[in-house]
Amino acid sequence: MTSLNDATSDQRTAIVTGAASGIGRAIAQRFATEGMAVVCADLNAAGAVKLAADLSAAGHRALGIAVEVTDEASVAAMAARALEWTGRIDTAVANAGVMVEGDILSISLAEWNRALQINATGAFLTARAVLPHLLASPAGTLVFTASTVGLVGMKGTAAYSASKGAVVALTRQLAADFASRGVRVNAVAPGAIRTPLSESQFRARAADDAEFESLLQQVIGRYPISRWGTPKEIAEIVLFLASDRSSWMTGQIIPVDGGLLELR
């Protein structure tokens, strides 16, 4: 298998949005250990900077910056800062997102718009900002974080499902548009991943620790591999999609879901 830093290339630069915690944090850490220079971007600027400092202290090359993925100027500034830092962008992971729960009769228009703005428009703006630079890379790759609920219907996730369905469609469309120009575009579709964000959502629903654990078990009960997934498990698949190891793949949506979609 070809390393991300093979003997014929300089160190590659990756941007990861939503990098301050959860899946994004795990992706940034995994890219760094693989030898990439990593731009850790997040609305939580302090968290992004702290992650970059930790990676740098461990001997990796990392930069932490703030980004608001729904703001075109902020996303453009993120790409410009990455170029200023290393002079190249080889990989971008459009991972920043938000969960909005509720069926279509219970959510507000503001909640609907929030899900679409952050998850779908944020992915669009990130892709548009980095694609000119990915085209200049000898092996440009773009990876989106989609979701299993963007592939099948699940109860109580109207806005989230619609926004992640848009990410799925955008992945395939960009793959078709840019395959002949040397940029590969794929997506990972996680199932239930235990992160600080997902835990906080279940904590908010639970009256006590016992109910919290019961809610977590209810989720696990739907999965053939009867446990929650981990951010590190998603990061490994994203690394594969970003690397030369997947060099003949584009337009793919890879479920990483404990068998949920195929075996339930």
Rank of each mutant, 00 (worst) to 15 (best):
D6H: 01
Q11D: 03
T13N: 03
S21M: 10
G24D: 00
A26G: 02
Q29G: 01
A32P: 02
E34S: 05
M36L: 04
V39F: 09
C40A: 09
A41Q: 02
D42M: 00
D42A: 01
N44G: 00
A46M: 03
A52V: 00
A52R: 00
D54I: 04
L55M: 02
H60A: 00
L63I: 06
E68Q: 10
E72H: 08
A76F: 14
A80M: 08
W85G: 03
D90T: 03
A94I: 11
N95Y: 08
V98D: 00
E101L: 14
S106Y: 12
S108N: 11
L109K: 13
W112S: 09
N113M: 11
R114K: 13
L116T: 03
N119V: 05
N119P: 08
T121L: 08
A123Q: 08
T126A: 02
A127L: 04
A129E: 01
L131H: 02
L134P: 00
L135H: 05
L135C: 01
S137P: 03
A139R: 00
T145C: 11
G150W: 03
G150S: 10
L151M: 14
M154Q: 14
G156V: 10
G156W: 07
A158N: 05
Y160G: 00
S163T: 03
K164P: 01
A169Y: 01
L170F: 10
T171N: 02
R172Y: 13
A175V: 07
A179S: 13
S180A: 12
V185Q: 07
V185C: 09
A187W: 14
V188A: 09
P190W: 07
P190H: 11
A192W: 07
A192Y: 12
T195I: 10
F202E: 11
R205S: 10
E211C: 15
F212H: 11
S214Y: 14
S214W: 13
L215N: 11
L216H: 08
S226A: 15
W228R: 14
W228M: 13
G229M: 08
K232T: 15
I234Q: 05
E236Y: 06
I237Q: 13
V238H: 09
L239V: 11
F240E: 06
F240S: 04
A242G: 10
S243N: 01
D244H: 12
D244R: 06
R245I: 06
S246A: 15
S246F: 11
G251W: 06
Q252I: 10
I253V: 15
I254G: 09
G259Y: 09
L260M: 15
L261A: 15
L263Y: 15
R264C: 15
R264E: 11
